[in-house]
């Protein structure tokens, strides 16, 4: 069982991570490279009294080591999510929940809601150069929000009665009402148009990655159990 779960989670994660990486290089990484022009000061928004700054991402360039690292860490991150998702599927299967490939897509999208969408409400995806509160308290809020949202979705999916619904709603709301650590000042280093595009695109790529991850993790789980 251990071997089957490990291989399932890692294979699902590797494929989902590779697909997510391909989509990131098409839609997300160019925006990161463009933002770095503002981070380094090569471009300045609202600089020299002008509210305008030139738009357009620089080419990906030939920094293959950097881009290879990005693909590698995408695969590692999705493999990590794949292992966690497989463990949770196995736990549900132990309690009599049927885990099929079709339902896996819903598992994956639930993972997207818990891991990407819920924390993004308090901490929208950030481009390089964004000035923000200290990282460790934000990481703590991020982690607690994910755990809390995942527990809420589990209560919605598997809980019984009104209490499960109320408790789930509370778990979703409380981290957002407390709010993520933030500064009292806006800096707006990169243009708002670029930040908005980046936030939505990185979430969209995450949704695709998670749907693929959930499908594959459940499919591999189902095959191993059958």
């Amino acid at each position: 069982m251990l071997k089957h779960m490990l291989s399932g989670g890692i294979i699902a994660g590797a494929v989902a991570g590779a697909i997510a990486a391909a989509l990131q290089f098409l839609f997300v990484i160019p925006l990161i490279l463009e933002a770095e022009l503002y981070e380094s000061g090569a471009r300045v928004h609202f600089g020299a009294g002008s509210p305008q700054s030139p738009a357009g991402a620089p080419p990906l360039g030939d920094d293959w080591a950097r881009h290879l690292m990005t693909v590698g860490f995408d695969v590692v991150a999705y493999a990590a999510f794949g292992l966690i998702l497989t463990a949770l599927m196995a736990l549900a299967a132990r309690r009599g929940v049927a885990v099929t490939a079709r339902q896996g897509v819903i598992w994956g999208l639930a993972g997207f809601c818990a891991v990407q969408l819920a924390p993004a409400i308090g901490m929208p995806p950030e481009l390089p150069g964004t000035i923000n509160a200290e990282v460790v308290p934000r990481q703590i809020w991020w982690g607690l929000t994910i755990v809390s949202a995942a527990a809420a979705l589990a209560l919605f999916a598997f809980g019984r009665g009104v209490f499960a619904l109320v408790a789930g709603a509370a778990l979703l709301l409380i981290p957002q009402i407390i709010g993520a650590p933030h500064l009292d000042t806006y800096f707006g280093v990169v243009p708002p148009e670029l930040s908005a595009l980046f936030a939505v695109r990185s979430l969209a790529v995450g949704a695709v990655g998670w749907a693929v991850l959930g499908f594959l993790a459940a499919w591999l789980w189902e095959r191993g159990e059958g």
Partner: peptide, 28 residues
């Protein structure tokens, strides 16, 4: 899975942070 996630996503060691930089931004 959780340990792997910590090293890829959260660990602040400079070498790890720099290598995982674009992934961390792209995955928020």
């Amino acid at each position: 899975g959780a340990t792997l996630l910590f090293s890829a996503g959260l660990a602040q060691a400079t070498a790890l942070h720099d290598a995982a930089h674009d992934t961390r931004h792209a995955m928020a």
